[in-house]
Simulated assay, not measured.
Amino acid sequence: MPTVHVHIWKGFSEEKIKEIIEGITKVFVDMGIPPIAVEVIIHEIPKSHWGIEGKPASESRKDAKPPQ
């Protein structure tokens, strides 16, 4: 049973999270794994807790916004 952990910035819409889960599940289904066997876990992390280039993403990626 594949379990996929996805780390994203906090703020994605529920619709986008649903699309992520469906899309990742489809990859495994296309490989012949039944959808009931696929688990996708979304971890939402505040940009202030995500470091890029030695800075919090809230500083280094101020313009980057999660898709709505």
Rank of each mutant, 00 (worst) to 15 (best):
I20S: 07
S58M: 05
K16A: 11
H49Q: 13
S58N: 06
F28T: 07
T25E: 02
S48A: 09
H43Q: 10
I21P: 03
I24V: 04
S13L: 11
P2L: 04
S58A: 06
K26C: 03
M31L: 11
I36N: 14
V40A: 01
T3S: 15
I33E: 09
S48V: 01
A64Q: 11
S48Y: 04
I20F: 04
S48D: 09
P35H: 08
V40I: 01
I24D: 00
G23Q: 05
I21Q: 05
D30V: 08
G51K: 14
V29P: 06
E14L: 04
R61M: 14
I20D: 05
I42F: 02
H49T: 06
E53S: 15
P56W: 12
K10R: 10
E59D: 09
S48C: 04
I20E: 05
M31K: 11
H7N: 13
K18H: 06
P2E: 09
T25C: 02
S60N: 14
K65N: 10
G51Q: 11
K10Q: 09
D30A: 11
A57Q: 08
H49V: 07
P56K: 06
E53M: 13
W50I: 01
W50P: 00
P34D: 12
P46K: 03
P2K: 03
I42K: 02
I52N: 13
G32H: 02
K55N: 13
Q68N: 15
V6Q: 01
G32C: 05
T3E: 11
I24G: 01
V38Y: 12
K10F: 00
I24N: 01
K47R: 07
M1V: 14
G51M: 12
V38H: 10
I24P: 00
E22L: 08
I42Q: 02
E44Y: 00
E19D: 15
F12I: 08
V38L: 12
R61G: 10
I17Y: 10
I17E: 12
M31N: 11
Q68R: 15
D30R: 13
K55F: 15
W9S: 06
E44S: 02
K65F: 11
M31A: 15
W50N: 00
W9L: 05
S58G: 03
P2F: 02
M1S: 15
D30M: 12
I36G: 15
P2Y: 04
G54Y: 09
G54R: 08
